[in-house]
Design a protein around this nucleic acid. Structure first.
Length: 376
DNA sequence: GTTCCTTTGAAGCCA
DNA sequence: TGGCTTCAAAGGAAC
């Protein structure tokens, strides 16, 4: 990312990203100053919500109103605690991350379609976000609730693998529905993970840890199951018992994707657009319009997301989701289609190079999106 | 029912 | 090492 430059050093981030966080001592202090003193994230979120309300877009505003009521009460003390938790989680990697309240626990909803803030979603997330919510939690797969201060009697745990401190979780069975018999075994190093979040075998990480990034091998995410924090589909399940397929672990979201998740609803409300392609164009422009500090927040979130993903799925590779077409359609057919898609894309690129026919959205981009909408 | 569209960034692959 | 490709999210449109 051109906006963020400096040198590497992080074992997880890409070059450009590493750059931005290389001098963590200095830069992160700046980031923290900017992020927390200039514009507190909670305030930012609230202002966004207010904007949406002002715009009076019925659907989105309603959704945001709901969020607002949940998020308004984000207490400073909770943020302070989360800061401490984050530092522990980072194992000293980050001195003062811009998003100190990074929710360390992967809950099912964030990687799930319904966890989105999209106004079109009318389902209720399993995550109770009514209190102690991180300002950006709505776009994250995690909930701070479950990193809430551990009961004093519960010691922090140390990941055997990474040496990263982890909090023992409270019993969250009151928060989530428990799949019948879904309480899986918990490996010692992951014993901090809430029992109630254990998925059935189909949605289970090899370590026995469920993760929202795990989606059914059918490709398209099955929202209902994940709304309940588990992947259970009785009818299909019987088929799967016959041919068990590897659950799909999705890629962690990058900074822009996190930004999109958070801002999509706002753009929809403001622009009354629904086409994702058009909305994404607007979001792309807005992304570029962000200051480095604002972008840094999302880069930091994304970096932690990747880090957590790596801790949960050390053997996972992005390659796992290549070729099988796991993001779209599943199965052998999709493997066959992959070659076609690849060929199509190549042809498309050639078309664009040679001035081939323009897509509807290309036309839309130039004609239908008013300039002022792109500047919102 | 499936694929496309559109965006940026991370990561894999290949020359 | 650099360039290319795929995939992550989203949901309406097109097929």
């Amino acid at each position: 990312m051109p906006q963020l430059s400096s040198g590497g050093g992080d074992d997880l981030g890409a070059n450009d990203e590493m750059i931005s966080f290389k001098d963590e001592g200095e830069q992160e202090e700046k980031i923290q100053e900017n992020a927390f003193t200039e514009r507190d994230l909670a305030d930012l979120k609230s202002s966004l919500v207010n904007e949406s309300e002002i715009n009076q877009s019925p659907n989105a505003a309603a959704v945001r109103r709901g969020q607002q009521s949940e998020e308004r009460g984000f207490p400073d003390k909770h943020r302070d605690h989360l800061e401490g938790v984050s530092k522990q989680q980072d194992g000293g990697l980050y001195k003062s991350p811009a998003y100190s309240g990074y929710p360390f626990l992967m809950l099912p909803d964030p990687y799930l379609p319904n966890s989105s803030v999209s106004p079109s979603s009318n389902k209720v997330s399993v995550v109770q976000q009514s209190h102690g919510m991180h300002p950006l939690t709505s776009l994250l797969p995690y909930s701070n609730d479950h990193f809430s201060p551990s009961p004093p009697h519960l010691p922090t745990d140390m990941s055997q693998k990474t040496g990263v401190h982890r909090h023992q979780s409270q019993d969250l069975s009151g928060y989530y529905s428990l799949p019948p018999g879904g309480v899986g075994q918990i490996t010692p190093s992951m014993s901090w993970f809430p029992h109630s979040l254990m998925l059935g075998p189909s949605g289970m990480h090899p370590t026995g840890i469920p993760h929202p990034a795990i989606v059914p091998p059918t490709g398209k995410q099955e929202h209902d199951q994940y709304d309940r924090g588990m992947y259970v589909k009785p009818q299909v399940e019987t088929k799967r018992e016959k041919e068990p397929k590897k659950p799909v672990i999705k890629k962690p979201l990058n900074a822009f994707m996190l930004y999109m998740k958070e801002m999509r609803a706002k753009v929809i409300a403001e622009c009354t657009l629904k086409e994702s392609a058009a909305i994404n164009q607007i979001l792309g422009r807005r992304w570029h319009a962000l200051t480095r500090e604002e972008q840094a927040k999302y880069y930091e979130l994304a970096r932690k997301e990747r880090q957590l993903h790596m801790q949960l799925y050390p053997t996972w590779s992005a390659r796992d989701n290549y070729e099988a077409g796991l993001s779209g359609v599943a199965g052998e057919k999709n493997k066959a289609d992959w070659g076609k898609r690849k060929r199509r894309k190549r042809e498309k690129q050639q078309d664009s190079n040679t001035g081939g026919k323009r897509s509807a959205f290309a036309t839309f981009k130039e004609e239908a999106v008013p300039a002022q909408l792109l500047q919102i």
